[in-house]
Amino acid sequence: MGGRITALDVLRGVAILGTLGTNIWIFTHPAGPGGFLTGADDWGEALLRMVSNGKFLGLLSILFGIGLALQHASAVRRGQKWPGWYLWRSALLLFEGLLHYVLIFEFDVLMFYAIVSVVVAFVVGRSDRVVRAWLGGALVLHLAFVGLVTWLMHLGDGSLGGSLPIDTSTWLGQVRSRIEYADVFRAEVVFVLPLSTVLFLAGARLLRAGALEDSERGLRVQRRLAGWGLGLGLPLNVVTTLAGGEWFAVDRYVSAPIVSFGLLGAITMLVHRMRAPEGFLRRGVTSVGRSALSCYIAQNVIASVLCYRWGLDLTGRLGHLGVWYTVGAWVVVSALLMLGASWWMKRFSRGPVEAAWNWAYRAPQRRPVAV
């Protein structure tokens, strides 16, 4: 599997732009990030949110697991100790996620991924029996907690609580709000850690099964993923979305990840069958995928500047347009990401954040050893 895996770059690009499709509701809500927690106002908005809610974050998690498995395979081929320096990568990701949360975005996932990557790094190279045991145990824990939360929400009013008074009038005020309400904005950890463990390990197993291959074996895996993931996941997702707020946890953390596997299979099949020359859309999505970390951070910076009161305050000016404004904001930010990423990747081999991150990762290894 030498060189870049084209399907992997496209999948990452789709996952990043799809994650923006979830996050854009946060930026365009009139009450700011805290208001997003109150849920959709009507069925139409709920169904529109459903298109991206949780699915692309799940896809991103699966792809992270695939990337971790590729790094493990590379270390084994080179005879390097594992996890070894990979733990330094996880530490850097944790630090980067902390900065991203405090300075930029309330719902950062990088911190969670960093923690899970440490656990999975010690499991991914073990026997199939051990990997299956960890995957199964994490899945049972996740489903049990989702069931508990769903039961408690049925006993209550079926909501996540009232909106938080997040100050978006100044950048520093919003930073203070993130610190003050860290317990609320980081509460998703109880869902993300076990679920991400499942998806990371599933991604590693899918890589070994040939899920990204342009081959007969790969096609069989992709068809099964698309058939089961979309055939089962999408109807379930519609039902749990329309069932009401009491089913929020099932909708986002059970139904959506099932659809994520279907997206992985369907998009990979499509990529392998697209023989025409690259157009702007394919080139843009691929470039976003090749600079995924940079684009994940950039999308939140751009949306913050465009939407919040300390920026251009488009939400204050255009928020009355409702879902049309939200969809339009997603289109504009996505276009800016694809244009910027295409321009950058024509000139450099890595995205700007990836280049800085790679330097930080390599720097300790280049230090001379004292004799």
Rank of each mutant, 00 (worst) to 15 (best):
V254Y: 01
G244K: 07
E278S: 15
R217D: 08
L281W: 15
R220L: 11
R208W: 03
I267F: 11
S260V: 08
L270R: 08
G210P: 10
L206K: 11
I267C: 09
L263G: 10
N237M: 10
F261I: 07
L201F: 06
W247V: 01
L212S: 05
L232Q: 00
R208P: 01
G245N: 07
L230W: 04
L242R: 02
Q222G: 14
R275T: 14
A243H: 04
M274C: 10
G227H: 08
G265E: 09
R217K: 13
M269G: 10
G279N: 14
L219D: 15
A209N: 06
F248Q: 05
G231E: 01
A243N: 06
G245R: 04
L219V: 15
P277Q: 02
I267S: 10
L242Y: 05
S260T: 13
T240A: 12
F200Y: 14
A204C: 03
D214F: 12
P235T: 00
P235I: 00
A226T: 09
I267T: 13
L281P: 09
V254M: 02
F261V: 06
L270P: 01
V221N: 13
F280E: 13
R275L: 11
L263V: 15
W228M: 08
G245Y: 05
L234V: 02
A204F: 02
A249S: 06
I258M: 08
G244W: 10
T268D: 03
L225D: 07
E216L: 15
E216V: 15
A211S: 12
L236N: 00
A249P: 00
S260E: 06
V254G: 00
S215K: 11
S260H: 13
G265K: 09
A276N: 07
W228C: 03
G229H: 05
L225N: 09
L206Y: 11
A226C: 05
R275Q: 13
L234H: 00
G233F: 07
P235W: 00
I258D: 01
A226L: 11
L201R: 04
R223G: 12
G279S: 14
A266G: 03
L219Y: 15
G229R: 05
A266V: 10
G203D: 04
M269P: 03
T240W: 03
G265C: 09
A266M: 06
A211D: 04
G262M: 01
S215A: 14
H272M: 11
R205W: 05
A204W: 02
D251E: 09
L234E: 00
G265R: 07
W247Y: 14
F200K: 04
L270W: 14
V238L: 15
I258C: 02
M274G: 09
F261T: 07
A256P: 03
R223S: 11
A266C: 04
G245F: 06
L236G: 02
V239C: 00
E278M: 13
F280H: 12
R275W: 05
P235H: 02
R208T: 04
S255I: 00
D251N: 15
A226R: 12
G245M: 04
H272K: 11
W247D: 01
L263Q: 07
G210I: 09
F280W: 14
R275M: 09
D251L: 06
V238I: 15
N237P: 01
D251W: 05
S255N: 04
P277V: 05
G279E: 11
G244Q: 07
